[in-house]
């Protein structure tokens, strides 16, 4: 197992399948991430308000608010948050909507953990680049 220092990158996993989310949390934490979970859309939004993560892994099908609704709300209130959509069936339509709502990418379940980690790191880096751009703009 690679143990790259990830400097406690904060990752929130929003998925109503508790056993899936908790196992991903454990596996990411073993790899030096600071991962936590939320098991519904509303819970995810509340967790983000309290302590915004660096990257959000978001399941599309959840009770109360579904993933796309969460994404729409985040686009308004946390536009800088890097979001990776997790989906059972990678339909083009769900992907397109995710793309239009500003998600960084989407990954199909079952997840390849190494692929997920590289996406998390890419998403975090792109978020850094984005905020640099925003900072640049505001400075102008």
């Amino acid at each position: 197992m690679t143990t790259i220092e990830r400097n406690n990158l904060k990752v929130l996993i929003a998925d109503d399948e508790v056993e899936f989310a908790s196992t991903i949390v454990t596996r990411l934490n073993l790899r030096k991430f600071a991962a936590t979970m939320a098991n519904s859309g509303k819970e995810a939004l509340a967790a983000i308000e309290q302590d915004p993560p660096d990257v959000l892994l978001l399941d599309l099908k959840m009770p109360d608010l579904d993933g796309l609704e969460v994404l729409a709300s985040l686009k308004e209130n946390h536009p800088g948050l890097a979001v990776i959509i997790l989906t059972g069936h990678g339909s083009f339509e769900a992907g397109r909507q995710g793309m239009e709502l500003g998600a960084f990418d989407y990954i199909m379940k079952p997840v390849d953990l190494n692929l997920l980690i590289s996406k998390i790191e890419d998403a975090f880096q792109s978020k850094g680049k984005q905020s640099e751009k925003t900072d640049g703009k505001s400075a102008v």
Binding site: G90, S91, F92, G95
Partner: peptide, 10 residues
């Protein structure tokens, strides 16, 4: 076209 996009991803 949608199936092709999905295939590309998969």
């Amino acid at each position: 076209d949608e199936a092709l996009c999905q295939m590309a991803v998969e």
